[in-house]
Write a protein that binds this DNA or RNA. Structure first.
Length: 423
RNA sequence: GGGCAGGUGGCAGAGCGGUCAAUUGCACCAGACUGUAAAUCUGGCGGGGUAACCCUACACAGGUUCAAAUCCUGUCCUGCCCA
C-alpha cells in the first residue's frame, strides 16, 4: 500500500477542493495503520441513459481510490431522482416514474463499469432507507437545517432573482443526499464542484448522528465540445462513453484549443482548454501535460490527437485508438471518404426513369430532415456532392441518375452510400 | 384569499388589430479559410409546393372582427406585494 503522502498526491491531482484537507490526511493515515480501507461514496441519480465524459471525472477519481485499495460505495439515487437535484440548474426537474428509474439504473451500472470496477464496489439504492422513512423521520431530517442556510446557496439565489420557481421538495434534496452519507458511513464523498453544498450537508448530518464527518472532494466541471458550457446531455455537447472510437476521436479533435475568460480585473485571459481535458480525463502527470499543451514544444494538433488517443484508449483499447487516428487522418487530412460508409436502402419505386430529385434523395438518406431543410443545404454555398468525382450539386431541381452504390455527401461528415432495393 | 404584473420560436427578448412565419442578440446548421481548433467572412435557421401560393404556430379554450401574437371572456401556469 502506498504511503499517505503518496496517496494524497494522487488524490489531489485535478481536484477542485478537498474539505477539510487535514481530515483526509488523518483518515488516510489511520487507514494505513489499521488496514481498513476508506469508504468513498459517489452518488448518481438514474435520470438518463448516456454516461458521458463529464460524469467520468469524479468516477475516475473513484477508480483511483479503488486502485489505492479503498472501498467504493455507489449510491443509486432512486429516491433523490424523484426530487431532482437543484444544483447547477435553473429549473426544477420533473420526477421520473419508477420504471424509468429502474431501467436507467441498470444502464448506468453497465456504462460505469467501463471506468470503475463495479464488482468490487458496494452498490446501494437510497430507496433502501428512504422507502422506510416515516413522516416523523422526514420532520427530524428537515429540522436539521434552516431555510436561511438553504436559501443562501447560489443556485437558489439565482433562481429567486430570475423569478424561476423553486419547489419545496428541492430543498429536501441536499438533506437526502446527506442522509445517504449517514446510512453508508462515508469517509469521503466525491462530486462535481456544484455539489459542494450538498456534500457539506452530509458532514453536518453525520456529525449530528455521532459519526466522524466525511471529507468532501469536489472535481471541476468538465466543459463540453463547445469549450464554453458544461458538458451535458441536453446541450448535445458531449462524448458518450459508449460511442464508437471514430466518433470519440473526431469529437475530441473538434474541441477548441483555448478559451477566453474575463478575470476580476476585467482583463481578457486565454486559457488552454486542452489542458483541462488532459487533467480531468487522462492519467498523464502534470509535467507531461505541461509539455503537451505548450504550443512551442508540441504542435497543438498533435497534442489534441494524443488527447483523443488517450480518451479512446480508455474505452476501446489502444489498437482501436490507433485505428481511429489513422482513419481520421485519412479521412479529413486526406479528404477521403470514410472506410466504412453507412448504407441506406432506397426503394426502386422512388425512381422515375432511373432518376430521383436531389431534394427527395437527401431526405430519404436522412441527410435533411425535410424538403425545406434539403433545399437549404443546396444553393450557391452547397456542400452536397455525389459519386467518386464529387460532383457538386447546387440546384434544388437537379435530377440524379441513381445507381446502386452511389455515394452522397453533405459536407465531409455526412456521407452515405445508396443501396437500391426492390421491396 | 386579495391586489398587481406577466406567459411569443432552443434561450434571451421585440411586436400590442392588417405590411407577422413574427425585428434583434445568443445558440445552432451549411459553405469559404484552417489543424473537423480559434478568429473572420457568406448563407440559413416551422411544414408542403418548381412557383404563385397554401397549411400549422405566439400558454389553453372560446368570442369580437372582413382581418387577432395583438382586443374581450374563461381556464391553467409564473412572479411580486398584502393576508
Amino acid at each position: 500500500m502506498k504511503s499517505a503522502s503518496e496517496q494524497l498526491e494522487l488524490i489531489r491531482r485535478g481536484t477542485e477542493q478537498i474539505v477539510p484537507m487535514d481530515a483526509l490526511v488523518k483518515k488516510l493515515e489511520r487507514s494505513i495503520a489499521t488496514g481498513k480501507p476508506l469508504r468513498v461514496k459517489y452518488g448518481i441519480d438514474p435520470t438518463g441513459f448516456d454516461v458521458h465524459l463529464g460524469h467520468t471525472v469524479p468516477l475516475r477519481k473513484l477508480r483511483l481510490f479503488q486502485e489505492l485499495g479503498h472501498q467504493a460505495v455507489l449510491i443509486i439515487g432512486d429516491y433523490t431522482a424523484m426530487v431532482g437535484d437543484p444544483s447547477g440548474r435553473d429549473e426544477s426537474r420533473k420526477g421520473l416514474t419508477r420504471e424509468q428509474i429502474e431501467a436507467n439504473a441498470q444502464s448506468y451500472l453497465t456504462q460505469i463499469g467501463r471506468i470503475i470496477d463495479v464488482n468490487r464496489a458496494e452498490v446501494v439504492y437510497n430507496g433502501a432507507w428512504f422507502s422506510q422513512f416515516r413522516f416523523s423521520d422526514v420532520l427530524a431530517l428537515t429540522s436539521q437545517i434552516t431555510v436561511q442556510r438553504m436559501l443562501e446557496r447560489d443556485d437558489f439565489t439565482k433562481r429567486i432573482k430570475a423569478g424561476t420557481p423553486i419547489y419545496l421538495s428541492e430543498c429536501l434534496y441536499p438533506l437526502m443526499q446527506g442522509r445517504d452519507s449517514v446510512e453508508v458511513r462515508a469517509d469521503v464523498e466525491l462530486g462535481g464542484s456544484e455539489q459542494l453544498y450538498n456534500l457539506m450537508v452530509g458532514r453536518h448530518l453525520q456529525a449530528d448522528a455521532g459519526q466522524e464527518p466525511q471529507v468532501c472532494i469536489t472535481m471541476p466541471i468538465l466543459k463540453g465540445l463547445d469549450g464554453v458550457k458544461k458538458m451535458g446531455k441536453s446541450l448535445g455537447n458531449y462524448i458518450g462513453v459508449g460511442e464508437s472510437a471514430d466518433e470519440q476521436f473526431g469529437k475530441t479533435l473538434s474541441i477548441p484549443d483555448t478559451y477566453e475568460i474575463i478575470d476580476e480585473t476585467g482583463q481578457k485571459q486565454t486559457r488552454s482548454f486542452m489542458k483541462e481535458w488532459f487533467e480531468l480525463l487522462t492519467d498523464r502527470s502534470p509535467a507531461e501535460i505541461a509539455k503537451l499543451v505548450d504550443p512551442v514544444k508540441t504542435h497543438p494538433m498533435e497534442a489534441k490527437k494524443r488527447l483523443a488517443m488517450d480518451i479512446v484508449t480508455t474505452y476501446h483499447g489502444e489498437a482501436a485508438a490507433l485505428a481511429a487516428r489513422a482513419e481520421f487522418e485519412r479521412r479529413f487530412s486526406g479528404r477521403a471518404d470514410p472506410t466504412e460508409i453507412p448504407e441506406v436502402a432506397i426503394l426502386r419505386s422512388e425512381l422515375n426513369d432511373g432518376k430521383i430529385g436531389i431534394v427527395r434523395l437527401l431526405v430519404l438518406l436522412g441527410i435533411a430532415s425535410s424538403n425545406k431543410d434539403a433545399k437549404r443545404l443546396l444553393g450557391p454555398t452547397s456542400g452536397v456532392t455525389i459519386g467518386p468525382e464529387r460532383t457538386k450539386i447546387t440546384e434544388a431541381n437537379t435530377l440524379i441518375e441513381l445507381t446502386d452504390g452511389l455515394v452522397v455527401r453533405s459536407g465531409s461528415k455526412k456521407v452515405f452510400r445508396v443501396r437500391l432495393t426492390d421491396a
